[in-house]
Design a binder for these strands. Sequence first.
DNA 1: ACGCTCTCTGAGAACGCTCTCAGACGGTAT
DNA 2: ATACCGTCTGAGAGCGTTCTCAGAGAGCGT
Lengths: 353, 353
Amino acid sequence: MSKLKPNANHKAKDLNLEDIAKEAGVSRATVSRVINNEAYVSEKTRQHVQDVIEKMGYTPNLRGRILATGRTNIIGVVIPQSLATVFDDQFYFPTLLNGVAQAANQRNYAMLLWIQESSTDEERFYERILKNHLMDGVLLASTQQDNPFIPRLLDMDIPLAMVENPNQWASYINYVDVDNHGAAMVAIKHLYKQGRRRIGHITGALNNIDGIRRLEGYKQALKELGIPYHSEFVIEGNFESKSGYMGMQTLLKAHVDAVFCANDQMALGALKALDELGVRVPGDIAIVGFDDLPTSERNKLTTIHQPIHTKGAQVTHLLLDQIEGISDGARHVLLPTHLVIRETCGASITQRF
Amino acid sequence: MSKLKPNANHKAKDLNLEDIAKEAGVSRATVSRVINNEAYVSEKTRQHVQDVIEKMGYTPNLRGRILATGRTNIIGVVIPQSLATVFDDQFYFPTLLNGVAQAANQRNYAMLLWIQESSTDEERFYERILKNHLMDGVLLASTQQDNPFIPRLLDMDIPLAMVENPNQWASYINYVDVDNHGAAMVAIKHLYKQGRRRIGHITGALNNIDGIRRLEGYKQALKELGIPYHSEFVIEGNFESKSGYMGMQTLLKAHVDAVFCANDQMALGALKALDELGVRVPGDIAIVGFDDLPTSERNKLTTIHQPIHTKGAQVTHLLLDQIEGISDGARHVLLPTHLVIRETCGASITQRF
DNA sequence: ACGCTCTCTGAGAACGCTCTCAGACGGTAT
DNA sequence: ATACCGTCTGAGAGCGTTCTCAGAGAGCGT
């Protein structure tokens, strides 16, 4: 049985290409060819080498391969400080990561998670990991609009992909996005159809592109519906439930009859505020959120569903395609959203379609 | 401005030790010594070399170093399939990861996340990542008691640490744990002190050591309190809120006046069931959970708080100590928990201390 | 028999670092 | 002067792969 010990004693016992080559009576190069499934190896030798490999229980050492090929088959996933420290939304990011993991596993890549708990972590990431070519590419998620990393990464020519629209850098970067603008419009128009006319909005963080786009969608929908825009109907939130809770209290004074919240967390906060104050939902005020968290179903929240897992998987494929030279231009993917009608919007369920 | 392109063109322009050595008029070895802050370099050369490095903007290439040293400064964090596919608890794991990240960053390690979405992923992990020595050590979290990985990992002599008590392997493995058994007893005795005598328990998954220990604590507390054990007071759950919801409905038939849930998720499910049935909390039934999720505060849930972030950080330090040969035996850390009294247990807040 | 192509194989360089070893040098004790 | 020791430095091997290149052999048409 094993005991604990520092791993100094590992090197000795491991097999390498040479060992296999010797045992099989061929050269290192041939063994390498067999392992990598290259052409120009006779079926006979291939089989023989494979048997020897099997027999001796050999697996190629990635470290050697990494040095030789310059590729690590590792992608980096950067979680910005804001997300790492705010524990409010515990659904979005893990789900996204699962999507990334699925795609990465499938294509034989591993995922290096870089959680930035402090700003020194950010610098360290840049210095230690990126410049040293430990990763074949980088995935950026939920970053702020003016993230100073973006130009630096672009400058290093390291493959890069994002899960939001990178805005000014859009033409240089692969990204996956959902139509935040259109989805917000769908939400507003749905509320309008339920007879609501005094529709408020609690925005997301407005240094985040998603938050901005959803606000724009809100405004655009009002315009198309011929409803004048009232600034007192719009409260700036930050995606955290507390800001929904506070925002709702303020909006009540403006006598809104419906509120579109830029995400479900805030919508849940708003619902809590209304509940505490005895305001009926959807009787007095209708609520629509964005994200479709699992909790939202339990809370009967009408919301915009977005395919988070798919987002993670897709963006990973974009990145890997670039790393492997399959794609050469910046590619953009727009994923669909749809309105999930539950009870908080005042529409009966049968109205769904 | 950068354009997208496959990263074939990287190799050419990168500096290496040789370049610096040539420029500084010294040997590769000396530059290496300077970089690694080794002794036996004159202050004059050290400064000069450092200047050249600075001037040319050189950073050592990790790939070469990895091959030479056999160490990657990467630790693997394995997320078992059960956790990856169940999205119910979205707090525990991200928080744990943050703790791991903090400790790892601090000690200059990176974190390779291996999310197992399918059982082929598990095998792939073993074959591709572990046997190939891509990681200096492995962190196992929330694994089932009979995880077949454990003996395999032990057999490979790869440094290993766990965030639960590994039970039969305990004497071979570093781990961090909380006193689940004692904490459960605290919960039960607290309910007893509030006058409850018909105390039920919704267990966690019973293939998980935490779930088992909490059940044992429940039984032990009853015994010490002289309360006979009724099997109809115990419902087997699986840590998911739905099982708390269902379990509560069953327990109602047994006319319990209090329920200890093995985690907060299930406690929240139970609360929901009670709410729907019009049962008053804590009037008719008192509830105590385990974990102290952020949501629990909002729901006034009395619960056992455990230091999840610290757990992650501590277990990482244990692992890194072993990797670096600082520790040589299996070390165990037991972290404290405490009861957080809110409203669902029926105790007034002022009773807290 | 000759040249040609195509398949197969091995030798050896390359990747970029660390680490061991030997030797140079200066200072001190004998 | 000699021996010795501690400090500093460089040459070169080694880590385990991949990849290029050259060459051997087989098959085929002329």
